[in-house]
Simulated scan of single mutants.
Amino acid sequence: MRITVVGGTGLVGARLVRQLEAAGHQVAVAARSTGVDIVTGAGLDRALDGAEAVIDVSSPGYADATEMLRFFERAGATLLAAEQAVGIAHHVTFSAIGAERIGDGYYRAKHAQERLIAGSGIPFTIVRSTPLFEYIHDAIDAGRSEAEVRVPPIRVQPIATEDAARVLMQVALREPVNAVLEVAGPNSYALPGLAEQILTAGEDYRPVLTDAGARFFGARLGEEKLVSDAAVGPGDASLETWLRSALAPA
């Protein structure tokens, strides 16, 4: 099967491309480094040529809520129009649990992207995921000061990047469901406690303070629960597995 991975050089995309190729599929990587711009459409015709499915794991980063929203609206419209033109049979998008209800930051931007997909007329599957372990680490890092680390009192169920990529591959190889699926890691944590574990593992002993006003991916979440019953199996990557990998010497 020929599949185009949009954002195929990023954190999730690179792992997804490796998994697809290892399974014997033809993969076209659509990214700026491969000459593809999904905002302007440059290079999209080539990237989509002959593809049966598209998996979109693109992201502009998480620093600015307005820029995130603008990116997903513009890139989504451009990508979906190009897919319609060539008759893509299945569009898969990596989204976020909470996108439909939070209405702020990254989650607002992802919900805007989801609405574009649902209204495009292209057969689709949206995979909403709990945060990746790496993204949890980044969110914790964003709350650091010299004296402390501030995080919101949310509950999270982080998933390993390899597991998320594997689910996206499995979904793309199936028939589109024209609906939302969820995926989550095997264990849930209160974010302040999880932050302490991650920081301690990295020998950072600053106190972790619970702050309902602290942002998470650009959003104020209060006591939001980013969890799901749709967890990967208990044999899949846990916090301990991720920490061993993340802290391993380069």
Rank of each mutant, 00 (worst) to 15 (best):
M1G: 12
I3E: 01
V6W: 04
G8Y: 08
L11F: 12
V17S: 05
R18Y: 08
R18P: 05
R18A: 15
Q19L: 14
Q19W: 09
H25N: 11
H25W: 08
V27Q: 04
A28V: 06
A31G: 10
A31I: 02
T34W: 03
G35M: 07
T40D: 12
G41F: 11
A42T: 14
G43F: 13
R46I: 14
A51E: 12
E52N: 10
S58E: 07
P60Q: 01
A63L: 13
T66V: 15
L69Y: 14
E73Y: 03
R74D: 15
A81M: 11
E83K: 02
Q84I: 09
V86S: 00
G87A: 09
A89T: 15
H91E: 00
V92Y: 02
T93W: 04
R101G: 00
D104E: 14
K110G: 07
E114C: 00
I117E: 03
I117D: 02
T125C: 01
T125P: 06
V127Q: 01
S129E: 05
H137L: 15
A139R: 09
I140M: 02
G143R: 03
G143M: 04
R144T: 11
E148D: 14
E148R: 14
P153N: 00
P153S: 03
I154N: 09
V156H: 11
T161Y: 09
T161S: 09
D163Q: 01
D163A: 10
A164C: 03
M169A: 11
V171R: 10
A172P: 01
L173V: 11
N178M: 00
A179Y: 01
V180S: 03
P186K: 12
L191P: 10
I198K: 00
A201S: 05
D204E: 08
D204V: 04
A212C: 04
A212R: 13
A214R: 05
F216K: 07
R220L: 13
R220D: 11
L221M: 13
E224F: 12
K225W: 15
V227D: 06
S228R: 02
V232M: 13
G233K: 06
G233F: 03
G235Y: 13
L239A: 10
L239C: 02
T241D: 15
W242H: 06
S245G: 14
S245P: 10
S245E: 06
A246P: 08
L247H: 02
